[in-house]
Design a protein around this nucleic acid. Structure first.
Lengths: 127, 127
DNA sequence: CCGGACGCTAACCCAGAGGTTAGCGCTTTC
DNA sequence: GAAAGCGCTAACCTCTGGGTTAGCGTCCGG
């Protein structure tokens, strides 16, 4: 038995229980999750459309993130029993309820980037 | 030389550049950062106070997260040149501008937890 | 003169997120 | 009959965030 495993994981669970902010992070905190959610906010999409519209993501990771989002009940996976297989992903109401939060994060990010870039440029041009 | 390192890191940089939401996540996404920010929203705190008020965090990680927050210009580190050393951490205006976002995340997290817990309980009690 | 408060830093370790490559089973198109 | 579209899965590797342990330099209280 190896050391009553990982304070790391334990800490994470405790925090997610105590702090709803941490919980939210654990839900949308995957590298590609915001991107996926943005895409789906525009309407349901097929697996391959998602794949092509998100440049840089690998299939494995895309599937993993989709599964996690599904588990967290943010998206639904709809399989059409058709000849060439067809699978669509769609936001649940819970998923759509993220829209305003995502927008909030996005605009804060923009503001923060501008604010810090300015500071950087000032430091450079201060000659 | 080892393989033009890490698509991982590259992807992260690209995403943070393109997607402000991802950028925001990179700023507040540390395990303990939300907790630290919540504490500091109530007023400036000394290093040891923070340490004691956040149970489970290790000194190393606390320092790391504080340094990152400082780099991102969310907090200021104030050193008083005193006999027993004294250091205080305080939110910058930029840091305080996170308050509404944190609240938003917090309430969404609560809502999401309730929604999913219900579903879980239903599944259990459905006998 | 011993220990503790204070605010750290250094050295090390490990689990897990994310990436790479290959392949599957079915179908349509050339 | 070869190749490509579709939606995946399996096996493997790498890097990094977070955790553990130890210690430092200055001071004060007992």
């Amino acid at each position: 038995m190896r050391k009553e495993n990982s304070t790391n994981a334990i800490n994470e669970r405790i925090l997610n229980g105590l702090c709803q902010t941490a919980h939210t992070l654990s839900v949308i905190g995957g590298r590609w999750k915001p991107t996926i959610l943005w895409r789906l906010l525009e309407g349901k999409m097929r697996y391959h459309e998602l794949k092509k519209s998100i440049s840089g993501i690998s299939e494995r990771v895309l599937v993993l993130q989709l599964r996690e989002l599904e588990n967290d009940q943010l998206i639904t996976r709809i399989v059409y029993p058709e000849v060439p297989p067809r699978v669509e992903y769609e936001l649940t109401p819970l998923g759509r309820s993220l829209e305003s939060l995502l927008e909030h994060m996005c605009s804060w990010g923009e503001m923060h980037r501008d604010a810090t870039r300015q500071a950087g440029e000032l430091a450079v041009s201060k000659n």
